[in-house]
Amino acid sequence: MGLPKNYRKNLKITPTSEGFQARQNILNNIANPGTYLPKSILHEDMDRDFIKYVEGELELVLGGEKVPVIFLSIQRWAEFARTWKFSDEYKNITMPFITIVRKPDAQIGTNYAGKFNVPGKPTFTYMKIPTWDGNIKSYDIYKIPQPVSVDLNYEVRLFCTRMRDLNIFNNSILRSFAEGEKYLRINGHPIPLMLDSIGDESVISNLDEKKYYVQLFTIKMLGYLLNEDDFEVTPAISRGIQFFELTEKVSSAPYQINKVEEEGLVEINLTFFPSINNSSIPIEFNVEFSEIITQNIIEYEVFLDDVLQTLPFNSLIGQELKINILKSVPTSSSTITLKGTFS
């Protein structure tokens, strides 16, 4: 009896995170536990994890034996140190084997799709950590720079003598890149790999040479560099003090001159706003002042060219009239009116 339709054979028992929670999980993976900062990622980290990827996920087992993966650099004895376990009596490495060569020219990265970047290498707030020194509660601000993108190009070659061995490895590679790209978690950072090309360097056409297959996989890593030496931890502002300073000279009192020339009368009105207690006015005509009316003023002094005056007094053109007051309510405005006649 067949299974009924719509019968689910694979049930996801463990819930998977989505949306914000999934993004938060990625951030949590990047963060280095206990430091509140992300793990740094450098060339060595990317090389190390690429080798692990080839050794692990692309592991090739032929005839029950794991095919060795050899990462090569230029020191001759180091090359021999890597290969002697798999070599014959003439110290030649025996097939099959896989080699990884990283091209030395790490290129400017295309992780940001070649866009321009923030200039000046500023650091950005990554996390705020509360601190307590016994008296003051404050924060430390953890800041990191924008990562520097870098492209690393790897050449993975399989050397073997059988087509069926080629097929197995080729199958592993194509399955790994079936989605178009393959992500590696390098120090928690998700770094994509792109399969650039698959080439053939097999030595099979020359009848007078040893024949063997060489399949070349060119893989580009769209990585970025984040150096922990560039991280900054700075204390945040924990306490602010505001200072205010007031001066009586910041402004003067506005005044208004009313003249009734037919009757020969003149009137000067001054308004002293809060915090203003004195003012000076240039005299533009000859006047004999005979009356002063005040509002919200306890005391006042009137000077002409710094000479104290009492009513009545005469002023001449060009003199300076200076008035000092003492308010009864300092936070309110005061007015003073000087009345007189043209002389």
Binding site: I51, Q75, A78
Partner: peptide, 9 residues
């Protein structure tokens, strides 16, 4: 010979 784990140098 002491080498680094990645490059064997």
């Amino acid at each position: 010979s002491s080498t680094d784990d990645i490059y064997g140098e």
